[in-house]
Amino acid sequence: MMILQAQDLSLGYKHKAVVEGFNASIRKGSVIGLIGPNGSGKTTLLRAFSGLIRPLRGKVMLDGQPLTAIPARRRAQLIGWVPQREKIAWPLTVREVVSLGRAPYRGWLLPLTENDQEVIEQALSFTDLKELTDRSVEELSGGEFQRVLVARALAQEPRVLLLDEPSANLDIHYQIQVMDLVRELVAQRGITAIIAIHDLSVAARYCDTLILIHHGKKICSGVPQEVLSPEHMRKVFRVETRLYKDPWEHLAVSARNGLDKNE
């Protein structure tokens, strides 16, 4: 069952294409990783999937409906977006920021309903933020703040969760925490997560499917073992790689520049 489809998608800013002729079908209930070098178009693709930018050509289909035909509020009920970084202009509390996730469900002036409150509480406890609810977001560490952004997206009760480098600015502990959280969400709620990731080992370990992008074009997609093959990595990243199971049986990638002389 396909939840999201990209059909002949070309994206860009002011008619300079960043992504060209991109096709993909994304299965419901899976974790998809977008990988590729910096500037290859990962973030641009995510923004198109979220409806924040309109395609130059082609379209994004969400559950069989073109994304551009879905009203903004409805879209915000279906798609949650976790940006790579964000600066909240005012010292809102954790709970206030997470409550923003209910915005697409609320009338102009109506207070939060009981259901809204419940969803917010769930999002807060799922992301382990219960003890920080009344703290100002300005006082949080990077990892805590990243969890707030995930909680806000959860409060939207989305069917698709888009995460842009969710662990890029985090210490290793929180990197693992955020990625575990995403896997747990997908397993428990049947939502679909699409994640832009630059760390190949994180991608190998956490994703069901990877999509490799280079210069705005899809090179290949499939299970991590296939996509992370040495040939692909050499072509796209210009590195020599080995794919192996680490001592905990997680798939991992090791890389070095240039060819090994003995091989």
Binding site: A72, A76, I79, P83, L92, L100, A103
Partner: peptide
């Protein structure tokens, strides 16, 4: 006053506000 909640959403930036359904 009617825009109070929109301004809360705007605090998170224009992209985020839009991703939350704000016009």
């Amino acid at each position: 006053w009617l825009m109070a909640r929109s301004m809360d959403a705007l605090a998170a930036g224009e992209e985020t506000a839009q991703s939350l359904g704000l016009n």
